[in-house]
Simulated assay, not measured.
Amino acid sequence: MNTKRAQGLTLVELLVGMGILALLLVAVSSFFTSTSDGAVQVNTRAELQQDVLNVEQLLASRIKEAWYIYTPNRGQINLGTGQLRQNPLSGTGVWNLDTVTGTVDGGHMLAMILPPENAALNCTADTKGCFRFYAYYPVKRSVWVAGTASDGANNPGAGPNDANTWVLVELRANYLTGLSAVLPPQPLPGESRPLASTKPGAANFNYVPAISLPAAAPPNTGSANLLADNIAPMTASEPMFTFIQEPVANNVHSAVSTQEIVLRIAAVQQAKGRVIRLPAANSFYELRSFPGNLGRR
């Protein structure tokens, strides 16, 4: 009597089939992982770009609104102590404005005074009647994270490259006692300029009324808040803020000589193991803003 041998897979055939299936699973998994990582990186790029553009537009609007902008000839501004006011290059609260001498920490602060929101109000009775000090400056991300509450809105959370990344900070403070300084706006193009003066201390400019500069020291009050995260460090040769001033030969007081301010910001962040820098390596987004109260040149 003939008997049929049972049909089935041998052990070798089974192992080969399992190996092929494993390879297919790895390929499919790698495809989806790569697609997912690519999507995360694309989203990161879009978010970084939008954040930088939003910040530059905000700074440009502040510049146009400013009653007074601290110019490079004012020297140093001391924001005081504390991690949230710490210069990422010097490790102190002392900042140099952009200067032609190329100081190592020059050009990374923009400080200004904004007029009262409502000049008819008494400053001591309503903050909307006060002159307002604004300062924009970077802080090392690791220092900022360590100096803010872990559960606070100002803390973006620790990242993999905090020691080499900055955040951009906005410091606000009100001059509760008001300002006694008189700062007439710079003449617009085509208008007559003040004549040179021989009076001592007049800086060779004869403004009526005379210009009295606000103090370089900001008010002791105020709070520092996170404005932008993941800012790429800048250098003295490529500062975050550059002040373009009118030549002294045009007989314009240095206090109101700013023609325009150049803003330069770049963003950097790690996403899925890859460092993303925008707009590209060794480059930055640039925007020029013209102080509205001084007149565009």
Rank of each mutant, 00 (worst) to 15 (best):
K199H: 06
V208A: 15
L188F: 12
S212A: 11
V252G: 06
A224T: 05
V182R: 14
V208P: 02
D229L: 00
H253I: 04
G178I: 09
A202Q: 08
S223F: 04
P218H: 07
H253K: 13
E238M: 08
P209D: 10
I244M: 06
M240T: 04
I244C: 02
A228Q: 05
F243H: 15
V248Y: 12
T235F: 01
I211H: 05
P239W: 03
S237V: 09
I244N: 15
G190P: 10
L183I: 14
K199N: 12
P200S: 10
M240R: 01
P185H: 09
A255F: 07
P209T: 05
E238K: 13
P233M: 02
S237P: 02
M240D: 00
I231T: 00
S212Q: 10
S180N: 14
N220G: 11
I231Y: 00
G178S: 08
M234L: 06
V252Y: 07
M240Y: 00
P239I: 02
A255K: 11
A217P: 13
N250Q: 15
F205Y: 09
S212F: 04
R193N: 08
A210T: 13
T242D: 14
A232T: 07
L188Y: 12
A232E: 04
S180E: 08
L195I: 08
A236R: 12
A203G: 01
I244E: 12
Y175R: 09
A217T: 15
L183N: 11
N204L: 09
L226P: 02
A249L: 12
N230L: 03
K199L: 14
F205E: 15
L195Q: 13
N225R: 08
T235S: 14
L188K: 15
A203Q: 08
T221V: 05
A224M: 03
A249D: 10
S237L: 13
E191I: 00
I211R: 09
T221G: 13
Y207E: 06
T198R: 14
A181S: 15
A232N: 06
P194A: 11
P187T: 12
I231A: 00
N206V: 02
F241M: 04
A202T: 04
G201C: 04
P239D: 02
A228I: 00
N204S: 10
M234R: 10
P247K: 13
A255R: 11
V208D: 15
N251W: 03
N250S: 15
T198W: 08
A232M: 04
S180L: 06
S180P: 01
D229F: 00
A181D: 08
A232F: 01
Q186W: 06
A217W: 03
V248G: 12
E191D: 10
L183R: 11
N220M: 03
H253G: 06
V252N: 10
V208H: 13
A249F: 04
L179E: 03
T177Q: 12
P185F: 11
T177Y: 06
N250C: 05
M234F: 03
A217H: 05
E246D: 11
T242C: 07
P189L: 10
S180H: 07
V248M: 12
A216Q: 08
L195T: 13
E191L: 05
Q186G: 09
P194C: 10
F241W: 04
